[in-house]
Amino acid sequence: MLLQNNLISYDPSDFILPEDVSENLVASYESAGKVLRPFFGQTVSCGLFGIGDDHIEKYQSLDAKFVKNKASTFFFRASSNSMEPLIYENDVLVVDRSIEVRSNMVAIVSYCGEMYCKRIIKSASQVILRSDNPSYDEVLVTEDMNLIYFGVVRAVARELI
């Protein structure tokens, strides 16, 4: 709450709640030539009506856009050209474990002890791991591969400079 005689210009020490005002403080204010008066809640509005708080918006945040669930989001780095032209080497992959893998999504999977970023092609009878780069072969998922889904790639971040 503001002191009435300081409505326009004030310094931070003027933000005093009435219940915080101890006798010492009153004394120091009085010696500084300031007068404490109770504040009754009415303010005088100045300036244009309507362009105040209602229109203050937050800055855009990449986290808010791409990290929908902080607890389930992990970052990986692409280290091959197998998903070009979608993903290039050194791109940062934003991976969300909470998303259910559907056909045609790009996901992080592991098999035979290694982690891969691949497009998942699901049909009724089989699952295929496809690389967007046509020079890589498709991989048909078999049971003995012990395929594990890590999570779905929600977004890709690439530094240009």
Binding site: F76, A78, L93
Partner: peptide, 9 residues
């Protein structure tokens, strides 16, 4: 950090 995040093929 960013230097040591896991790489995928």
């Amino acid at each position: 950090g960013w230097n040591q995040i896991k790489k995928v093929l």
